[in-house]
């Protein structure tokens, strides 16, 4: 598995798209810092970008890579290697290289800017951690689609739909349900609904770390009461981990029973 991961990673690290992705973040980081001059503001802007873009890129890039490396996969399948190792290797390679682009692309400008000395280092660290988690989650989800759908066009469509659902439609339904049941106490419900969607969960986790959390008012206090504790934070991290582990597990399960 490590060998596959190594080569896949190697392949991706040298691909044009990884560079574009990396340079995009690098540019974004520098722009935000030198136009804004305010680290915590930059973190908020980054939050907006990360919760939309990282899932989108993870999904699209994941599905594209899976389809494009069909022949490579078949070459590997004929080699004396476990299937599980091949797909886990491919998955970790893609998710890993996306994460590396993200972490280095944003990390370099922030480090140069003097992040290490500033107080937002933990917020920024959390942001990168969450960006990495989202990369792994959405790459795993897109691999799931790819492994069960041989039609590239359909697979691509499904993965865009998936992203749309998680990033937009889910929140729309969530909002409608909140308005519809507005007479009822909704704090626990909204806590639950937030936990279930990794994008919402990521957004809230970061918001709570920032000054802007004060805007969340009473509901925010309930959230802070939950996520602010060690147990709550661990639960949030466990949910994010489940979002990585379950789709990956299903992907492996499907891949082991698939004809190539």
């Amino acid at each position: 598995m490590y060998k596959i991961l190594k080569y896949c990673f190697y392949d991706l690290i040298r691909s044009r798209w990884s560079y574009v992705y990396f340079l995009f973040y690098l540019l974004l980081g520098f722009m935000l810092l030198f136009l804004n001059n305010d680290l915590s503001k930059a973190v908020i802007t980054l939050l907006n970008i990360i919760i939309v873009l990282v899932p989108l890129i993870g999904t699209i890039f994941g599905i594209m890579y899976f389809y494009n490396s069909k022949e490579f996969t078949e070459l590997l399948l004929a080699q004396p290697i476990r299937r599980r190792s091949i797909f886990l290797g491919l998955y970790l390679g893609v998710a890993g290289s996306l994460s590396v682009s993200l972490v280095l692309g944003l990390g370099i400008p922030f480090v140069l800017y003097g992040l290490m000395k500033s107080g937002v280092i933990w917020d920024f660290g959390l942001l990168l951690l969450i960006g990495t988690a989202l990369s792994f989650i959405f790459t795993a989800l897109s691999f799931n689609i790819a492994v069960t759908q041989d039609n590239k066009i359909k697979g691509f469509g499904y993965s865009v739909l998936l992203w749309l659902f998680m990033a937009v439609i889910y929140d729309g339904l969530f909002l409608l349900s909140l308005i519809f049941f507005e007479e009822y106490p909704l704090d626990r419900y909204s806590l639950g609904a937030t936990l279930l969607n990794p994008i919402d969960l990521s957004r809230i986790l970061i918001l709570l770390k920032l000054d802007i959390a004060a805007l969340l008012g009473y509901t925010g206090a309930v959230f802070k009461g939950f996520f602010g504790t060690n147990a709550g934070f661990l639960i949030a991290m466990a949910v994010l981990s489940l979002w990585v582990v379950l789709p990956t597990g299903r992907m492996i399960f499907k891949a082991e029973r698939k004809d190539f």
Partner: peptide
């Protein structure tokens, strides 16, 4: 406006959906 009606909806602060 929505937050005024249903304060809990503030949890969607800074979400892509609300931006749209």
């Amino acid at each position: 406006y929505i937050v005024n009606r249903t304060p809990e909806t503030i949890v969607l602060l800074r979400s892509f959906f609300m931006g749209l």
